[in-house]
Amino acid sequence: MIQDVVSVRLPVGEDLIIQKNHIVGDCGEGPRICIITGTHGDELEGQYVAWKLGRYLKKRIHKLRGVVDIYPSLNSLGVSTIERGLPGFDLDMNRIFPGNTESSANEYIAKKIVEDISGADLAIDIHASNIFLKEIPQIRINEKTADKLVPMAVHLNMDLIWVHSAATVLESTLAWSLNSTGTPCLVVEMGVGMRLTKSYGDKLVAGILATMTHMGMLHEPLQPVYPPIISSDGFVGYVNANQSGIFMPEKEHGSQVEEGEILGYVADPLTGIIREELRSPITGLLFTLREYPVVYSGSLIARVLGGAEE
């Protein structure tokens, strides 16, 4: 059943309605899981997951216990206008949670979204990097919530669980707002902005179904999932450009690289010269790679995952 989460009248003859697909299983009461995506309007990988999962569960409703809420587009204006942020608004939507009812329509919407999700047994917030970087399927967990969330994340069929350090500014994200008030929320990052990567989406859908089976929501044989690599900041090497120009990659995303190996070049098409060679700082997995070619000094080019625990 399609339900309205929050509605706000826009200036000219239109209501902005954030909706969800509210799926109630035939096997009685049980846990509630929320699948959330579209906070950033240019991140579309979650659209495939929402669609595929909704279709699958429609056919398996007789085997479902509990509730699945699918929120395909928290930032509907951004998705509809190919804009990462909230159109006409300064702040990133994922920096205004838990929202409030005293400032702006967007902060009002954020508050209503948090109220709607709160109390779920698990929330999965699907992101897709941005238009600049491609990511392998991964889950990012704030170190402050790692003890609780890592055991819940291992069934999601993602390649990597990255436990990252805490930062005060991240306390305004949807995931933090939910986790800090008792609703466990896992953040998925995979693929690249403005594109769909079907293989990644299929992988995550399988992981969500496996997680639901573990939670006792699906009465089906458990689908096999691969154990993820679990890592922390200390094992991640960063490569940033120090020159401006056009990035020309030399390595494939997701490949193994050696310390000192050339990952790509910053090229100058005007003069035909190479402005900078970009080398891997460590041996490991090239799990993040620049997708958008125009770079400036400081642009993130790659992240390499070194020796991490399996």
Binding site: R84, G85, D90, N130, F132, V169, Y238, N240, V294, Y296, S297, G298, S299, L300
Partner: peptide
Amino acid sequence: RFFPVDNTDINRMFPGYNLGETTQRL
């Protein structure tokens, strides 16, 4: 209004980071 490439806000990047991304360096 914001940095034209990645739409980041320089005034949300302090104290900055000299080895970080473009607006962190700025």
